[in-house]
Design a protein around this nucleic acid. Structure first.
Length: 567
RNA sequence: GGCCCCAUCGUCUAGCCAGGUCAGGACGCCAGGUUUUCAUCCUGGAAACCGGGGUUCGAAUCCCCGUGGGGUCACCA
């Protein structure tokens, strides 16, 4: 063991799903606080990642791995915890102080939690209880009907201790409950201040389940002690649990860590951000589209019906994506991976998340994680819940992309396309992708948007569908003025020897000057001819990425289509 | 419902702790302008101290009450 650390924080997700943005923010703040200690005194801080998998039904290794990946993507490195090395050079985890293991299931196998439970049992601060979940539920119901506050009535204590032990040891199903002392629990929260809970509010909660596994409360307290955690930073939903933890810590003679409960993150409408929101959005889209049957193959008819009727039903992520694609809607982003898939940059998400519940106080809003580490202070945390404003996030992302070099954007966009949009890399060669990246970067808000804007270049000429309004406005209007431009410039394009952006730009400029019209009068007809719509990257890049042959083919096809339409 | 937490522009927030500012910034919105489409960008504008009592010469700031919002009441975490 090395010398004790001044600041030891931990992020302790339960591996039952993906990393939620709220969890990401907690992890970020925990990381920043440990990092800050290391900045002023190297080696004095540690950020631990711990996997709380005591729920045997819902936990999975796949989920653990995905949470690790999501943290890695955000650039949040952990000093101690499960090891992770990724191809992009990310490295986190390890156990330099020898305080592991970092999965509660592993610590359970070592019998560590039983040791703690036994200590409590032996000191008379815990006892075996034999009520079944059904019996407890019935008691709870009865209390509810009588408008009573339910508290476990300690009826197990009426059984003599020796008999309790004997029954438990003989294998009779039982739980272990913590014997709450009859005294108020007080603790200081760095964000909320001093909190006092009266003994009448706490009952003898379960610390070991019938399956022998510790409950969250016991595991947290045992682990935090074993790992030397000094600062417990977590969401406000845990505030009500804290008195239980403090009571346990006092009974066990453990140090009481510093607590800091972060305010919650909400949807714009004030509801809690939840995975269900994605189902809700998809369901609403199906309803407003008047769908009577499943719109996608991967969702069986019977499942669709049940899902539409029952608001509690949730579809698989790929089923939701398919529906969203089909109905052309955007699903709300909830988990970190949703934002990644939507084309947001990790540093932007971190920046934005930092601002939910914290600010440096001097009107600085754009900063990186290092700045956060330098400036973070628990005393500056905001107490009020924050609503998640996607518009502001989008604005931040746009600014990040705008400020990025073409080279950096190109690299990041390629990486994103490899994961989410294979067509871009399959249909275009390296030079075309680089050219498009440079053209798209100044005008896209997300990596995904760049991929969408690139679609015109991913299909053959025959697949171009001409937008009727666009054709009317830029080609047919004023006796086919636009068509005239197309016919006029076609020959000049064909005669080009060098098909670069510069050369194309020169040509368009020269043509518009010679015709005595603005650039728009030339560029727009070309746009519509080449892409079918009035929107595309700058006209030089639009032509350059398609190549001369494709450009001529598309112009010819457009001319033909319009001739058919006119006759 | 009990208990606990919270309350500044539509949103994120600064200011509060150590009362005196035209209550500041950002996103969004509105109006102009730049631009070969789109997206940017530039200029300007509207926009807040939840209500009521106190304390004080003076309250966004300190205290109390009310109202509103949230969290939590599991052999989930």
């Amino acid at each position: 063991m090395t010398t004790p650390k001044a600041i030891v924080t931990r992020f302790a997700p339960s591996p039952t799903g993906r990393l939620h943005v709220g969890g990401a923010r907690t992890a970020l703040f925990c990381w920043a606080l440990a990092r800050q200690a290391n900045l002023s005194n190297p080696g004095s801080g540690a950020f631990i990642l711990r996997i709380e998998d005591t729920d045997r039904l819902r936990s999975s290794d796949a989920s653990t791995r995905r949470i690790l990946d999501d943290l890695a993507w955000l650039g949040i490195t952990w000093d101690e915890g499960p090891e992770l090395r990724t191809s992009s050079g990310f490295a986190g985890g390890g156990d330099p102080r020898g305080v592991g293991p970092f999965e509660q299931s592993a610590r359970f196998e070592m019998g560590e939690y039983d040791k703690v439970v036994n200590t409590l049992l032996d000191s008379g601060r815990a006892y075996h209880a034999f009520e079944t979940p059904e019996e407890l539920a019935a008691m709870r119901d009865a209390a509810m009907k009588a408008k009573w506050q339910f508290r476990y009535d300690r009826s197990a204590l009426s059984i003599p201790e020796a008999e309790r032990r004997r029954r438990a040891e003989s294998g009779e199903p039982h739980v272990v409950r913590f014997l709450m002392a009859d005294e108020a629990i007080e603790f200081d929260d760095e964000i909320r201040g001093h909190v006092t809970i009266q003994p009448s509010e706490l009952d003898d909660f379960v610390i070991r389940k019938a399956d022998g596994w510790p409950t969250y409360h016991l595991a947290v307290v045992a682990d935090d002690e074993a790992m030397g955690v000094t600062h417990v930073i977590r969401g406000e939903e845990h505030l009500a649990n804290t008195p239980r933890h403090v009571a346990l810590q006092k009974a066990l003679g453990y140090r009481i860590p510093t607590f800091a409960h972060l305010s919650l993150i909400f949807n714009p409408d004030g509801s809690k951000m939840s995975k269900r929101d994605r189902d809700k959005a998809a369901r609403q889209a199906c309803e407003s589209a008047g769908l009577g049957s499943s719109p996608v193959e991967i969702l069986p008819e019977s499942d669709f019906e049940r899902w539409m009727k029952d608001k509690r039903q949730a579809l698989a992520p790929d089923q939701l994506e398919a529906i969203a694609d089909k109905l052309d809607i955007e699903l709300p982003e909830i988990d970190v991976c949703d934002f990644e898939a939507a084309g947001f940059l990790p540093e932007t998400l971190c920046n934005f998340l930092s601002l939910l519940g914290w600010s440096p106080g001097d009107d600085i809003e754009k900063f990186d994680n290092e700045f956060l580490a330098q400036r973070i202070a628990l005393g500056r945390m905001v107490k009020t819940a924050a609503k998640f404003d996607r518009k502001k996030l989008l604005s931040f992302n746009t600014d990040s992309i705008t400020a990025m070099s073409d080279g950096e954007f190109h690299r990041r966009w390629r990486t994103w396309c490899e994961l989410h949009d294979h067509a871009v890399l399959k249909r275009l060669d390296a030079g075309q992708v680089e050219l498009l990246a440079a053209a798209l970067r100044p005008r896209c808000k997300t990596l995904r948007e760049a991929a969408v804007s690139a679609r015109f270049a991913l299909v053959g000429a025959e697949a171009i569908r001409f937008d009727e309004k666009a054709v009317q406005k830029t080609l047919l209007k004023d006796d086919g003025e636009g068509l005239g431009v197309l016919r006029g410039i076609r020959g000049r394009i064909e005669a080009m020897t060098e098909f670069t952006c510069d050369a194309i730009n020169e040509l368009v400029k020269a043509y518009s000057e010679s015709a005595g019209v603005g650039m728009g009068k030339v560029a727009q007809p070309l746009r519509v001819a080449l892409t079918g719509s009035t929107v595309s990257p700058p006209i030089d890049a639009t032509l350059a990425v398609l190549g001369k042959v494709q450009v001529l083919t598309r112009i010819d096809r457009c001319l033909k289509e319009c001739a058919v339409q006119a006759s």
